[in-house]
């Protein structure tokens, strides 16, 4: 494993920890999109079907379990926890997320590395992850006051994407056989979606003012 990949996994982990910290300690999920969280839970469920079939490493197994458990518990908190769910910004979280699941599934059936159940689910999870952030970005844009933790959550998620691209570039040169065009292209699309957010995040951080996205 190279340093970019490890740093990418760690920023991904930090983003989840930041979000859980906000939900668990402040008992608030204000500004967090339930739609995005549901999509992530679906992404991990579809991708980690190989969890009990293919053993890669202890690190790999533990991280998969962490991402599965954290994504489902965030969804649980936002839907069922009696205090947390009251802070959910339902009126602004209106992205029709169900409508992006089906196109991703169709795309996975058409473009995959192998036409088997697990490979199609893997491709589906990659496509879905690429667009899963959209409801969150839409919600951020509609929210007047983006609190620091929510901003940091999205920032760390975006950092994870950038680091994964650097990891692929590194792997391309060091492991020529390792080429997964599906994840690379979808990963680049996903990272581009963050570009706008990153721009405003860095500006607000540089000027030391509260993050606010233009309408």
């Amino acid at each position: 494993m190279n340093l970019f990949r490890l740093a990418g996994d760690m920023t991904h982990l930090v983003s989840v920890v930041v979000l859980l910290l906000k939900i668990h300690t402040i008992k608030s999920c204000a500004g967090v999109s339930l739609k995005t969280q549901e999509l992530y839970a679906l992404v991990f469920a579809a991708r980690y079907l190989d969890l009990f079939v293919h053993f890669v490493s202890l690190y790999n197994t533990v991280m998969k379990l962490v991402f599965l458990a954290s994504s489902f518990s965030i969804v649980w908190y936002m839907r069922k926890h009696k205090i947390v769910r009251r802070t959910y910004d339902r009126e602004h979280d209106t992205f029709r997320h169900h409508f992006i699941v089906l196109p991703c599934l169709v795309l996975a059936l058409l473009i995959n590395e192998r036409f088997t159940f697990r490979e199609v689910m893997w491709a589906f999870s990659i496509y879905l992850e690429a667009v899963a952030i959209l409801p969150q970005l839409v919600l951020l844009q509609r929210t007047r006051n983006i609190d620091n933790l929510t901003g940091q959550y999205v920032f760390f998620l975006g950092a994870y994407r950038v680091l994964y691209i650097l990891n692929w570039i590194y792997r391309y040169f060091t492991e020529p056989h390792f080429v997964h065009w599906i994840s690379w292209i979808a990963g680049i699309v996903q990272t581009v979606l963050y570009a706008d957010f990153f721009y405003y995040y860095i500006i607000s951080w540089k000027n030391n003012v509260k993050l606010e996205l233009p309408a």
Binding site: H54, V56, R118, E119, H177
Partner: peptide
């Protein structure tokens, strides 16, 4: 047989 063991990323 090329299996999907090469999917070692998260």
């Amino acid at each position: 047989e090329h299996e999907q063991y090469d999917k070692d990323e998260l």
